[in-house]
Every structure is written in C-alpha cells, then in structure tokens.
C-alpha cells in the first residue's frame, strides 16, 4: 500500500530544493558549504524518520548542528594534542 507521508529522504530532498533560490544567490564557495551541511543531515536520516517531527526541517537542522559539533570536538582534541606537543617541545 502506498504511503501517504513522503519518505524521510524525499522530505530532505524537498526541504533542500526549497532553498534552491537561496543557494543560487550564494557564492560558489558558500554553495559548497551549504551542500555539505545537507550532506551532514543525511547521516541521521533514520533518526530523523524515527523522530517523526511535524516540521522535519527542525530535525535536519539539529542533525547538521550535531555533525558540526562532532567536528568541533574532533578538532578541539587535535588542537589540544598539538598544543601539548608544542608545549613539550618548548
């Protein structure tokens, strides 16, 4: 039986398409960054589907933030490691 609700992947595609005009007006380098954010949201499609949010874009934004935060945390660890190596060298 066909489902009435679009799949979560379709939802994300629709939301991404809805920002088409916004994306078009961005600089090429910013377009790439925006695409990367949407790619990051795709890492959590299963969780977004399970969340069944009325406004799926809210969940996608949080998913983007989550990936950004992981990246920040990863970089922080690296920076701290580099710092301590520098301090050791000094």
């Amino acid at each position: 039986m066909g489902r009435t609700l679009p799949s979560i992947t379709q939802s994300l595609n629709e939301e991404q398409a809805a920002f088409g005009r916004f994306r078009r007006a961005l600089r090429r380098s910013d377009q790439t960054a925006l695409d990367e954010l949407f790619t990051a949201a795709r890492q959590h499609l299963a969780a977004a589907a399970y969340a069944a949010n009325l406004l799926p874009m809210e969940t996608f934004l949080l998913a983007m933030l989550l990936e950004e935060h992981k990246e920040v945390a990863r970089l922080r660890v690296q920076v701290e490691a580099l710092q301590s190596r520098l301090l050791d060298d000094v």
């Binding site: 009435t4 609700l5 979560i8 795709r42 499609l45 299963a46 399970y50 069944a52 009325l54």
Partner: peptide
C-alpha cells in the same frame, strides 16, 4: 492527522 505523521513510516534504515 498528527497520529498519521507519527505512524506512517517504515523500518529503521541507518546510514
């Protein structure tokens, strides 16, 4: 319609 949104989806497929 609220409950439709909460139940009309399939199995969990992770990435």
């Amino acid at each position: 319609m609220l409950s439709l949104i909460q139940s009309d989806f399939g199995g969990l497929v992770y990435q």
